[in-house]
């Protein structure tokens, strides 16, 4: 597909064009900007982005699958970006989240894309942000981002979401301790999944305490059965409505946008910096920080200096 076909295809909600468009972004293709500037901004503004995060095995994909099912009942065209960590050693990744979503495989109004972290910190957010916009412009609303809540980059991703659900479940080990380390901060709603299992009630009670302090709700689900999922979706959507009414939504999106601009800029600078940093061929023996400053000031030009 050439770039004009991709641009035209996204606007016509063609899933292959959406997929090709996301690949342009992922591969740092030079035609990416043409696509991104062609997207229908009103669709992007309208689409609600739902974040699903939580520890491995909590049931995020199962829940996502059921959220998809519920959205389809409401005749919404839905997008899913499923993010998995890349192996730090080999750079490879296995995406298994789709296994739980295959019941929708033939539904052309369900668009699923797997994405690996590739060890890029801000770069992943930037790529995922652009991918979400492509899906939105391709008619998807809502869009779900599923990510394992473990690493920093995965957590940053959640800033792309309007409303984030933190999914936990009994029997995952250090239940609440693991959650407390940062994840609770980003959650707009807390989900105790696997409510059919022993320990769920206990976990819900513990989480309720933290949730109350933060003015958050705790919802119980049995994702494997679909129990509580419709309520969860409705609650997430109504949180979004409240955020829109209070101006919180606009504030968050502006912040996410500013952050993405910085992330992209850093991504673009990285290779330049690497090249310049290597230019001395390893001969330079001075202090690395001093050297870095000289390089940055060289890029800024016009006698602008780094204020550090």
């Amino acid at each position: 597909m050439d770039i004009d076909q991709i641009i035209d295809g996204v606007a016509r909600r063609n899933n292959r064009a959406i997929a090709k468009g996301i690949s342009l972004v992922e591969n740092g293709d030079e035609r990416t900007d043409r696509l991104l500037t062609s997207l229908d901004q009103s669709l992007i503004d309208e689409a609600v982005v739902l974040g699903i995060t939580g520890p491995p095995g909590a049931g995020k994909s199962t829940l996502t699958d059921k959220l998809v099912k519920t959205s389809r009942k409401l005749e919404k065209r839905i997008g899913v970006v499923a993010i998995d960590p890349s192996s730090p050693l080999t750079g490879g990744a296995i995406h298994g989240d789709r296994i739980r979503m295959m019941q929708h495989a033939l539904d052309t109004d369900v668009v699923v894309r797997s994405m690996a972290t590739r060890g890029r910190l801000g770069g992943l957010c930037a790529s995922a942000g652009a991918s979400v916009r492509i899906m939105a412009a391709g008619g998807c609303n809502p869009i779900i981002i599923e990510t394992v809540g473990v690493g920093q980059s995965e957590m940053d991703i959640i800033s792309l979401a309007d409303v984030t659900a933190l999914v936990s479940a009994p029997g995952l080990g250090d239940d609440i301790q693991a959650l407390k380390a940062g994840l609770l901060e980003v959650a707009d709603i807390m989900v105790v999944n696997k409510a059919d299992k022993p320990g769920a009630e206990m976990l819900a009670m513990e989480l309720s305490e933290v949730a109350r302090e933060k003015g958050r709700e705790v919802v119980k689900t049995v994702a494997s059965e679909g129990t509580g999922v419709e309520e969860l979706l409705q609650t997430m959507l109504s949180i979004f409505e409240q955020q829109k009414a209070s101006g919180e939504s606009r504030r968050r999106r502006r912040e996410a946008r500013e952050r993405e601009v910085v992330d992209w800029a850093l991504e673009m600078l990285r290779p330049v910096l690497r090249e310049r940093g290597a230019e001395d061929g390893g001969e330079y023996s001075g202090d690395p920080r001093v050297r870095a400053k000289a390089i940055v000031e060289g890029i800024l030009g016009d006698g602008e200096s780094v204020n550090q």
Binding site: A19, I94, M102, V112, R113, S114
Partner: peptide, 21 residues
Amino acid sequence: EVVYTGIRRSPEEIAVAAVQE
């Protein structure tokens, strides 16, 4: 980067997943 779709997939399901990914 490997997308794994699990067992018992129809050819059509596999093709659609390959296109979307």
